[in-house]
Design a binder for these strands. Structure first.
Lengths: 202, 202
DNA sequence: CCGGAGTTTCAGTTATTTCTGAAATATCGG
DNA sequence: CCGATATTTCAGAAATAACTGAAACTCCGG
């Protein structure tokens, strides 16, 4: 007597999986994709597609598509078991890897296209007063996004342990600016002096 | 001869508006909402609902709902013109206000509900080995999100000018940690000494 | 408290997305 | 190369979300 079309999971896990399903839409993936990821995330070992079908009570093809999408997001790791042709799916052990990937992929989907469009649009020549103002506004947006992505690129390069330390500092970090100001730093420290140290010269 | 059901905008603006419409879905709003916001953002002065209808070629009621949603996001400012009962809509002048609002609202919609659920779920007692592992995994997620939101709360409190300075520092900021380590800081500065400075304990 | 401009609500339609089952394709051991 | 198993594709069905027009409501001046 195997129950079809219904989830078969311990209550704690089911709650979590259902929640991720609901949130999925807000995160730009569909319900099934959210559920699959939640399941893989909490699972002690990698699962194959049929196990996911069984656990979530959705169609095999749906799972296949969901896994494909998760792979496009770089969010799953593919594993193989000896003597078993089936593919097993898991999430990265290190949750920081997951977070970094999520941010990277969302940036790619949600920020980069707009940055490109803004760049292109700012090349055009305004033909009216309205366009002139619009372009000025777009430049503001472009410059802001540009700065944020530069900053992100810098942060991404910092290793996790150090990043955590920095974040723990919280707003205390801004005291570093007080130092700079008070001591009249021109921005050199133990690097060879670089001309763009004070302000980023973009 | 007024054209109905079609956009009537200068090319540059139209490109921008259409792009925001398309991106809207990735940003968790529908096409019309994205278009309305793009239009308001580049518009030199606030617009009333009918002007938006005219510019975008969508129905009056659609604009009404879109504006309502934008208000729920705190992304529009309501203006009134003397001797005119109609409401005029605009975006904040300062683009940083917009970015801050966006981040705040997305956090509210995309992060906070999950954090709550995790908190609740972590109160439960696991009934199986699977649940035990799942809960451990959820705790990892909870602690990470918790740290990130703490950090975010700190950053939010920093005024924009200073935040920009900090971001411009980029990865150079992490040298502040080298100082700490090299000088043997125990983490006190003008705060009371805290035992959890090296590793997190929260 | 009436008239009307302005706005919102909502039931129904249209468009879009998600999901499924069946068929097609791929992969591997023998 | 065959047969068995695993996976993907895809056209249509089901579910959701977006959009519209018409009606309802609000607010104000007179």
């Amino acid at each position: 007597m195997k129950r079809e079309k219904a989830m078969n999971l311990p209550p704690l896990v089911q709650t979590f999986v259902l929640h991720f399903g609901e949130m999925g839409s807000r995160w730009g993936v569909n319900r099934t994709v959210g559920q699959i990821y939640a399941l893989l995330f909490v699972s002690p070992e990698p699962l194959n597609a049929d196990e996911i079908v069984e656990a979530l009570g959705v169609s095999r093809s749906n799972v296949s598509m969901g896994l494909k999408e998760l792979q496009a997001w770089n969010l799953v790791r593919l594993r193989h078991k000896p003597g078993d042709r089936r593919e097993y799916f898991g999430t990265p052990e290190d949750i920081w890897v997951i977070v970094r990937t999520l941010i990277e992929e969302r940036k790619k989907r949600e920020i980069d296209p707009t940055l490109s469009l803004l760049r292109e649009t700012l090349m055009e020549r305004p033909e009216s007063e309205f366009e002139r103002h619009a372009q000025a506004r777009m430049r503001e947006m472009h410059d802001l996004i540009d700065m944020l992505t530069d900053w992100y690129a810098d942060m991404r390069a910092i290793e996790t342990e150090r990043l955590v330390q920095l974040m723990k500092l919280g707003s205390k970090i801004s005291r570093v600016l007080e130092f700079r100001d008070r001591l009249g730093f021109s921005g050199k420290r133990n690097d060879p002096p670089s001309p763009d140290d004070e302000e980023r010269s973009r």
